[in-house]
Write a protein that binds this DNA or RNA. Structure first.
Lengths: 249, 249
DNA sequence: CGATGTTTTGACTCGGTTCAAATAAGGTGG
DNA sequence: CCACCTTATTTGAACCGAGTCAAAACATCG
């Protein structure tokens, strides 16, 4: 695999996180400095279990590369519960609890940053401090995403599921400032999409072709071009997480 | 509808909650008294929105009757995200956040109890107080249930989905002491089961018949008899929420 | 250049949906 | 207690969305 997903420099990485959290609360410059100052980097190759389902993992931030939250059935079937994008947390849960709720696996080469100092600061400060609020809103959005995942697989057609998932990923990338001009990095294989949408690989392939044929998206070699974001959202009843949760720019 | 689901007396209701939380942490008698002392009751008929998706609701405890967390697509399709059983929380989320994440609807006549005093006590006390821990574990289990829901609909057959869902509900009822001798209240219609499992009503019906034919369960007029809990769990790879989260009796 | 993983295509099958109608169960009012 | 209404369950038959199997075409990388 190329190092296409390892691009962020020392400064650009934390910048992603700040950009995301600023959507949720007006960070103080102290907050931003705190995030900029994180420096315990770590690189992992694809396939690595960043979080094990059974044990508790230390909190980190994903700075570059993609990961997925995953569950396996004993017979080998795999279900992806959600994707983890740059700027998202890894084991950032604030519940004081010995068990992490599911495994997280790197899908590409991945860079993470230790976030213990961040969580420490939040734990000490008041519950309504901007940083704390921002993290809570982020956690709420994660939960919303999990609910969207349920609705997709419970009540949507293959076509809608994929359009909806892509709409979600697009919005999340937009929020952290990844991609420009409706062009985004998209390192997912069709197998990963299948495991995330509850479809077979073959059917994902055919459905993608249909969406492409209808000129809603373009998808080649790790790059996604969303030709018609509005139509893409319309065909699958995609609605950005409800008003009030965060204010888009 | 009968008043089959309105049975708990003034004392038996809170008892359910205590029984549940005791699985998660050794409550102090002060904790238990606090719960017993809650007394702002409320009764609602089936169909009532206990929580609206858009606004924030005050925290309550469900004491009698069943509810469901629900999402609607604009064309009317409905998805049930999970069921809420006696002893469970209603809007018990501890995130200080203006948005509730999805609607909750009463499926039967329902009794709830105001839990503001409970949340207040927890907010004041330390984070590792037993009561606080218990609520956190409860929240973690809720999240696990949501993940199970994803796996069911993403990667399981109709037969497995229903067996798995019933296994989950059985375990949760066991935990609060509802039902005895493998016989449990079961107020769900096949339409509700369909909306929860992502299947059609007709197919739920046929699948239930198959499970009955195989003598795993018996299901009549609001009562569930689990004839073979182990086999029921085995056929769908059901595993109780991972060890450490709570210790079954 | 071969080796490996990913995407694509075709043909066939099947699990689950849909539509429509019959039957059963509960709830209500006389 | 019966007649009636409504809602829930059950059945049958036709259909279709998505899965499976197998092989070909592409990419990417060492």
């Amino acid at each position: 695999m190329t190092d296409r997903y390892r691009t962020p420099t020392r400064r650009a990485g934390p910048e992603l996180v700040i950009r995301k959290l600023r959507h949720f609360a007006p960070l103080t410059s102290a907050d931003e400095n705190l995030i900029q100052a994180l420096d315990d980097w770590r690189h992992d190759p694809p396939g690595v279990e960043l979080v094990r389902a059974t044990s508790q993992a230390p909190p980190r931030l994903l700075i570059a590369g993609w990961a997925a939250r995953v569950r396996w059935l004993t017979d080998g079937r795999r279900q992806i519960l959600g994707f983890v994008l740059p700027g998202d947390g890894v084991a950032l849960c604030r519940r004081p609890h010995p068990m992490s709720l599911c495994a997280m696996v790197a899908l590409t080469p991945v860079q993470t940053l230790d976030a213990a100092a961040l969580m420490q600061a939040v734990a000490i400060g008041p519950n309504d401090a901007p940083l704390s609020v921002a993290l809570h809103v982020g956690a709420a959005l994660d939960e919303q995403a999990l609910m969207d995942q349920v609705v997709r697989m419970g009540r949507m057609t293959a076509y809608e599921r994929i359009a909806h998932l892509i709409s979600e990923l697009r919005l999340r990338m937009l929020m952290v400032g990844l991609g420009a001009g409706e062009q985004y990095p998209f390192p997912l294989t069709q197998e990963m999409l299948a495991d995330a949408t509850g479809l077979s690989i073959v059917h994902v392939n055919r459905t993608l072709q249909q969406i492409r044929r209808e000129r809603l998206i373009d998808l080649h070699t790790g790059r996604l071009l969303v030709r018609d974001p509005q139509m893409l959202a319309a065909v699958c009843d995609f609605k950005p997480p409800s008003a009030g949760a965060w204010k888009p720019k």
